[in-house]
Design a protein around this nucleic acid. Structure first.
Lengths: 167, 167
DNA sequence: TTAAACTTTCAAAAATAAATGAAAGTTATT
DNA sequence: AATAACTTTCATTTATTTTTGAAAGTTTAA
């Protein structure tokens, strides 16, 4: 396999993976492209390589910057803006984890708390509901806290964690 | 908040969460409904509660059973089939983790290995590509192994893991 | 073996999500 | 302050995903 083919395959795969995880295909593809580029890439080049429109490129770059995993760069003497991706994978994982926790887990926890604290009359049905949603609340809370803890390590947290778990 | 409202809120929330994680809304809603039901539910009842068609219900129940997180049950003297969800949350998390690893992570790893082993000519560009995709391969492999390890604990693995990490 | 009671399948329709591109906006240069 | 170089926005179009529902399939019981 030659470079161009490999690069394309990587970008496509990363894009497909993204869409299975609630991130849109183009956003993931742009990220993939930037991640394997050794130097900052212009909007024009992204459009060209992925064959997508200007608007689409702009919106998805904005989203990636909101997630804090893509940065704008300016080159001396160049009017255009260039973009680079966070390339440190530990840092990338931490940022993604934080963002998803904030956007998805925290709001879900809020609802879980609400619904798990209704007062059940003494029907088995309502008791079971309260019991199950309470357990779910505890579980999700614990998982979310764990994410925090994990990513607090920082600096190769995954490696360290693996060590910790192994022994 | 009264029971019916709480139940509905829970089902809607779980459904929305599902669609952010690549699981379709109805599938997640059915799962939510079954999870908080203290007894097996018939297809008819699911259709009624969620206001969805027979075909949709059938397909999504099948998918849930493929994931191993919903079971068919037969009631003595009843012709119809009933359904229940896996209610043990540790078990549920393990099954979801295993399934996603199998369906998404493993195939992605295969591609990462392929593209990271092309031989780069000596351009900085190609070297960077190989370097970055190799790192990604290692990272994803490590994360996937960790998932395995975590879920191997079984029996309140999350709780145990939290303890392990804290100290 | 027939009929009734139920479930599954899948082509078509509907709903949802993403992409386009032209117009509006912004910034830097002369 | 006018113009050129570039980016963002958003109403509309396009593509993708999900849902429907009727027909086909299956199972049980008489």
């Amino acid at each position: 396999m030659e470079f161009k083919e490999a690069k394309n395959k990587f970008v496509q795969t990363w894009g497909a993976l993204g869409s299975q995880w609630g991130i849109n295909k183009t956003m993931a593809q742009i990220h993939a492209l930037l991640m394997v580029s050794n130097e900052p890439v212009s909007m024009e080049d992204i459009m060209e390589e992925l064959q997508i429109s200007r608007g689409n490129t702009s919106m998805n770059l904005k989203a990636l910057m909101d997630w804090g995993i893509v940065y704008k760069e300016y080159k001396a003497g160049e009017r255009r803006e260039f973009f680079t991706a966070e390339k440190d994978l530990d840092e990338l994982a931490v940022k993604i984890a934080r963002e998803r926790s904030k956007r998805e887990i925290k709001p879900a926890l809020k609802i879980l708390k609400e619904v798990s604290t209704i007062d059940a009359n003494n029907s088995a049905e309502e008791k079971h509901f309260v019991d199950q949603t309470s357990k779910l609340y505890d579980f999700v809370l614990k998982a979310d806290n764990m994410l925090d803890k994990m990513t607090e390590f920082n600096e190769n947290w995954l490696g360290r964690l693996v060590l910790k778990i192994m022994k």
